[in-house]
């Protein structure tokens, strides 16, 4: 994964994935929200992808995925 690359996601990319992969039948409008954000509920997909590019480079050694929090005695 190239460092600091900030590619801009295109709707065509999503359409191609949708055509090839066993995924749900997202409409053009739904895919368009991923490319060009309108709703201010969560971070836009392009920004998430850029963050993921950075996060994926972090060496976490042998840290396992988080599970439950260790409970206290008696519970």
């Amino acid at each position: 994964m190239p460092k600091n690359s900030k590619n801009v996601l295109s709707q065509k990319t999503l359409q191609l994935i949708k055509a090839e992969f066993p995924i749900h039948d997202w409409s053009e409008e739904e895919l368009n929200e991923l490319v060009s954000q309108k709703y201010g509920v969560i971070t836009g997909f392009n920004e998430i992808l850029n963050d993921i590019r950075e996060l994926a480079q972090q060496d976490l050694d042998d840290i396992e995925p988080a599970g439950n929090i260790e409970t206290v005695e008696g519970l």
Binding site: L14, I17, I23, H24, W26, E29, E30, L31, E33, L34, Y39, V41, I42, F45, I48, I52, L55, A56, Q58, L60, I63, E64, P65, A66
Partner: peptide, 25 residues
């Protein structure tokens, strides 16, 4: 509409990235 867009976004997150996020946690 907002929820459908959120689920669509969830569709394109790769398994490796989900696991990496759980390890970040």
């Amino acid at each position: 509409k907002d929820l459908r867009a959120g689920m669509a976004l969830g569709q394109f997150i790769l398994a490796e990235h989900y696991i990496q996020a759980k390890r970040m946690v």
